[in-house]
């Protein structure tokens, strides 16, 4: 790791100020993606701005229609939250299978979606549930948030403060993990509710998480695994690596989607 300056602001405003003052600085939340990158010397930020001392960024609030998870809430906290389990069980369950227990104890929702690793789980939930990302300066709709591989709509000095999920009628997430890393090789989140019927796929796409229009259309007509029969996923835009070819990933998208619909009930 290259050395860097380290800041531990006490408020979001202070963090934003630090970030705006130094274009080479990076925000660190749980650090579960960033620290491995730094250890491999693949990035050389001038400074790390640690959100770890900002109490406002932690917490879960559930209303009649939404679940709002603040940015620095850990996956373990979401997984263990009785309120989340009641309101959006699929979200709690997704959080309970991110990485491994130690990753879940440190990793945060804000960090996960701001990083937009193409194999991360949360982006699928954010997109499929039509969540709204709250930032230090605005609100961004899920459909506008993820813009490409490791890319989001966030400005350089913008911090994710919370994610607001509408409570769906039905939802489920099923993933096929990469056998080595255990990140999602293919993960499919299906949801039906106020946001309509939405299907988001993570792990498979060469440009990160994406919605599956054909599946959404089919499920809007008939919410059942059988409705997905015969729907294919074009392989051209999918990832290809030593673990899974594009074609295999395309196939798995179909299998995971059917299983997710069955699980959602």
């Amino acid at each position: 790791m290259y050395d860097f300056a380290y800041h531990r602001p006490a408020t979001v405003a202070e963090a934003v100020k630090l970030l705006a003052a130094d274009p080479e600085a990076k925000v660190i939340s749980g650090g579960m993606s960033l620290i491995p990158v730094l250890k491999q010397r693949l990035a050389r930020p001038s400074a790390l701005i640690d959100l770890g001392a900002i109490p406002d960024l932690v917490g879960i609030a559930v209303s009649a229609t939404t679940v709002t998870i603040r940015g620095r809430t850990t996956h373990a906290a979401v997984a263990a939250s009785a309120e989340v389990k009641r309101a959006i069980p699929a979200l709690a369950e997704l959080a309970s299978h991110i990485g491994d227990p130690q990753v879940r104890n440190r990793g945060t929702i804000g960090g996960s979606i701001a990083h937009h690793d193409p194999t991360a789980d949360y982006p699928a939930a954010v997109l499929a549930l039509g969540a709204t990302v709250h930032t230090s300066r605005r609100r961004i709709a899920a459909d506008d948030f993820f813009t490409g591989l490791f890319a989001t709509a966030l400005e350089p000095d913008e911090i994710v403060t919370a994610v607001e999920f509408p409570i769906p009628e039905k939802a489920a997430y099923v993933k096929f993990p990469n056998p080595a890393s255990r990140y999602a090789m293919v993960g499919v989140f299906v949801a039906k509710g106020p946001m309509g019927v939405r299907v988001a796929v993570t792990g498979a796409g060469a440009h990160g998480v994406f919605r599956h229009a054909a599946m959404e259309e089919a499920l809007a007509k008939s919410w059942s695994p059988e409705a997905l029969e015969g729907i294919t996923t074009p392989a051209a835009d999918l990832n290809n690596d030593i673990h899974a070819s594009r074609e295999y990933r395309a196939h798995l998208v179909g299998v995971m989607a059917k299983r997710a619909v069955a699980k959602a009930g």
């Binding site: 380290y6 531990r8 660190i28 650090g31 579960m32 620290i35 491995p36 250890k39 790390l48 640690d50 770890g52 373990a76 227990p101 130690q102 990753v103 104890n105 440190r106």
Partner: peptide, 15 residues
């Protein structure tokens, strides 16, 4: 009180 990978957390984060 929570298990973490001490190779993936900075010492300064443990203040």
């Amino acid at each position: 009180g929570a298990s973490v990978k001490s190779c993936t957390i900075l010492a300064v984060q443990c203040e």
